[in-house]
């Protein structure tokens, strides 16, 4: 089977136009109403970001009594360092993390899923174990370690572990997907004298776009949303990330700029949302495997 036309085959049921349209309308209605329900809290957040400050917690209506973009202006420069700097930092950390995770985790996953070596099961079990220990208790030993390496107050503790595949979640995820790819592919390639590297690079990776895109999306968003790592390892405000900046808006014991918090919360969603929109197209690439399987 050639993969050209197969790529265009989209899941459609048997052609029965009238009934199909009704089903389709029903599905859209269901999806849309579900979306509204899901999104109400976010709409509230959006409305709150345009509200006058002293109305945020006291007003019951979702529509603000007056619209103002003050909170955005105030929030953007509200801290001593502008949010532009925080955005740049977040982009650097998240971008590098995506590169690191996709490369290092796919390599480890390839080893676990496709290659045979001694103690493989042992290492795999170890990898899973790292997922199970709550980070709160390894925090301090890890801090001491990074301090000895002289990495505190730099991005290194946040980025280097990604290049060393420290997040077992993504290895495990990729292992599950790689194991779903037909074994005959590697066997045939091996017969032709392909090295493991070529099999990884030329066969496995191109066929794994959905899972690689998934890993990229999750890494970017989770790194972006993470505040505990940056909180512990970054001290100077000029190296803060967006999330850390957001958290300094509110202090539960004193004066806080809630309007600024909401406005910046809304803005902080924009890059991760765009990243998601862009990369989710790759999720569809999975159809390309259609023609090749079996």
């Amino acid at each position: 089977m050639s993969d050209g036309p197969a790529k265009l085959t989209v899941v459609t049921g048997a052609p029965a136009p009238g009934r199909k349209r009704l089903t389709s309308i029903l599905i859209h209605v269901a999806l849309l109403s579900a979306s509204v329900l899901m999104l109400y809290p976010l709409l509230w957040l959006l409305a709150a970001s345009f509200r006058p400050e002293n109305e945020i917690f006291t007003s019951a209506s979702i529509i603000p009594s007056a619209w103002s973009i003050d909170a955005y202006i105030r929030g953007w420069n509200g801290l001593r360092t502008s949010f532009a700097t925080f955005y740049l930092n977040s982009f650097i950390i998240s971008g590098l993390s995506v590169a690191g995770n996709v490369i290092a985790c796919s390599m480890a996953a390839f080893a676990f899923a496709r290659l045979n070596f001694r103690f493989k099961n042992f290492w795999f079990a170890m990898m899973l174990m790292t997922l199970m220990l709550p980070y709160q208790v390894t925090l301090i030993p890890q801090y001491v370690l990074f301090r000895q390496l002289g990495w505190v107050n730099t991005f290194l503790p946040l980025v280097v572990p990604k290049f060393l595949a420290a997040d077992g979640f993504f290895i495990f995820l990729m292992v599950q997907f790689f194991r779903g790819l037909p074994k005959e592919l590697d066997e045939a390639a091996q017969m032709d004298g392909c090295s493991p590297w070529r099999i990884y690079w030329k066969i496995i990776l191109p066929l794994s776009m959905p899972v690689l895109a998934t890993a990229a999306i999750f890494t970017f968003i989770w790194t972006w949303d993470d505040f505990f790592g940056p909180l512990i390892y970054l001290s100077e405000m000029k190296s803060y990330t967006v999330m850390l900046g957001l958290r300094t808006f509110t202090d539960s014991t004193g004066e806080s700029d809630y309007g600024g918090l909401f406005a910046m919360s809304v803005l902080s969603l924009v890059p991760i949302f765009l990243f998601f929109l862009f990369f989710q197209r790759l999720l569809i690439e999975g159809i390309a495997t259609t023609g090749m399987k079996r």
């Binding site: 290092a104 480890a108 390839f110 676990f112 045979n116 070596f117 290049f163 060393l164 420290a166 090295s195």
Partner: peptide, 19 residues
């Protein structure tokens, strides 16, 4: 038998044993 596997696993191994 073993080298390719360990080579692919190398980044993870370094991270696991080192960090």
């Amino acid at each position: 038998n073993d080298a390719p596997g360990y080579l692919f696993l190398l980044p993870w191994l370094i991270g696991f044993l080192g960090l």
